[in-house]
Design a binder for these strands. Structure first.
Lengths: 211, 211
DNA sequence: TCAATAGTGTCTCTGAGACATTATTGG
DNA sequence: CCAATAATGTCTCAGAGACACTATTGA
């Protein structure tokens, strides 16, 4: 009988913050060695027979303190298999993404860092974030679950621009993003406008997911 | 201590056959229960500390009888986590692709089936093949390791057309594929022509990977 | 010369990208 | 009116797709 590898699930927990107008990554200090006190992605060991999404839910509720009801979507990214990635011994890490509904978040104990400015992380988590970021950018506007999870049921053009800039690293022209969004299945522009910004300016249009 | 899930690696073993002008998938009958005698993807349990590629190598050498030297490239696809996928108990399956150099294959005991006509397989392997096939098609001409692994160091325009048709399901126009290939980094057209076909016809150009 | 195969020129259509211009708000 | 913000019209360019036509082989 082959002795089996341990499997951990590490989560890229993402939240769009309308105030800072950026996508934030949830990290938390590690409670135990190795790397006690260092920041890390929320992760857990996969239980026997446990599904990946359930493990991801355990990770974000347990490590970040986010209520399970706030999880809006989740999905798989890729697997990291370097045997030395955990000093305790060889452990597979399956990376998942997970998005939250900003309105249902309360009392979490996570540190939320802009994707452009993630602090140094424990294990090989810097590498995980680096390798997975392009995959996340690629999902935006192409994976409806991911996009809707990040932006919510309704959102404005301005927010769409902010999220796109956060993930891809540069801000699209509004006219171009508008056309991209027109072609996203299930997404429709409403006739409504959001409230104007505090600094004034024309109120942005509201977009909505058709159910 | 959480009891950990078993991890298996299941391989989509791919080979381009110039005679049938198609991409073939390697499968083998299972030796033991469950599903003894039924066809299945080559797979092994991942050993502790073993890398995914090494497990894939064990799977194709052990189950298909392909010499390790014939492996031209390998890579990750996705993970299947349904707890009931193996009747023996919950097992994660990480799907990998693997390509072979046709010239170094000898004495393998695999059944090679065209991708369009894969026989019914054990476990959830039909689903694995179905879910992964679009990912394979997507890799062609975009992942140089995959493309070179499948087509070899040198290949003709005609073979490029055949491989593309096998993976995507329809045959591109030669002019269009030519332009696609011109833009693949590391790929160059040589001035040489291959030997003419048995049925006659203009001999195709040879393409080569710049090292 | 013909059938079979391969290579190439070129037209169209779509989508990404880049602006310039217009519209709507608060101060 | 002005600054700030958002929406839209439109031009260009690159790439996918679709053919038509030309080229090179064996029989």
């Amino acid at each position: 009988m082959i002795e089996s590898t341990l499997v951990s699930v590490d989560v890229l927990a993402l939240r769009f913050d309308p105030h800072s107008r950026a996508v934030l990554l949830g990290v938390a200090p590690r409670a135990f060695d190795p790397f006690a006190g260092a920041m890390a992605l929320p992760g857990v060991l996969l239980g026997k027979g446990e599904r990946l999404r359930d493990a991801a839910r355990r990770a974000v509720t347990g490590k970040l303190g986010v209520p399970a009801a706030a999880i809006s979507a989740a999905g798989q990214l890729t697997t990291f298999d370097e045997p030395s990635r955990d000093p305790r011994g060889p452990t597979l890490s399956i990376a998942l993404w997970c998005t939250f509904d900003a309105s249902r978040m309360d009392g979490d104990r996570a540190t939320w860092a802009p994707l452009d400015d993630v602090p140094p992380l424990a294990f090989d988590h810097d590498r995980i974030v680096g390798d997975c970021r392009p995959m996340l950018a690629d999902r935006l506007w192409r994976d409806p679950a991911f996009t809707a999870g990040l932006l919510g049921e309704e959102f404005t053009t301005a927010q769409a621009l902010d999220v796109t800039e956060s993930l891809t690293g540069d801000r699209p022209y509004p006219a171009n993003l508008s056309r991209t969004m027109e072609r996203v299945p299930g997404l429709e522009r409403t006739a409504r406008h959001a409230a104007a910004q505090p600094k004034g300016g024309r109120p942005p249009l509201v977009w909505r997911w058709r159910r």
